[in-house]
Design a binder for these strands. Structure first.
Length: 105
DNA sequence: GAGTCATTCGTTG
DNA sequence: CAACGAATGACTC
């Protein structure tokens, strides 16, 4: 079930170029809500998982955040690996280059 | 500097 | 209708 809100989140997320990452706060702001939780939930329930680069979304603290409902574990390792392939390097579970952050305002 | 508490939006049961 | 969820921000210790 895809709602209008989710559509906005996916669109904003698609607006992020490869090799860049965005934060839940930025996405939330882009869709017009102040609760990154709603964004996280939309991504968690993402019906377009492979179509939506949900792995390009990280926490505002430059931390890896979560992936597929898991805030830690193998899923996170895979997320970091995927981002590394795109040029986004994570260090100790955090973004090594903050310059890769992309604000989709 | 690190840890904890309260806040907020949307979805699902 | 009520509870939960990929978080954030601010305050306190």
């Amino acid at each position: 079930m895809i709602t209008a809100f989710q559509s906005r989140v996916y669109t904003a997320l698609c607006s992020v170029p490869r090799g860049r990452v965005t934060t839940y706060a930025s996405l939330a702001s882009a869709v017009g809500c102040r609760s990154p939780r709603a964004v996280g939930q939309a991504l968690k329930r993402n019906p377009l998982a492979p179509s939506v680069p949900c792995h390009r979304v990280i926490a505002s603290d430059s931390s890896i955040g979560g992936f597929r409902g898991f805030r830690s574990g193998k899923a996170i390792a895979e997320k970091i690996k995927m981002l590394a392939e795109e040029g986004v390097i994570f260090r100790d579970g955090k973004l090594a280059d903050a310059g890769r952050l992309f604000k989709c305002t």
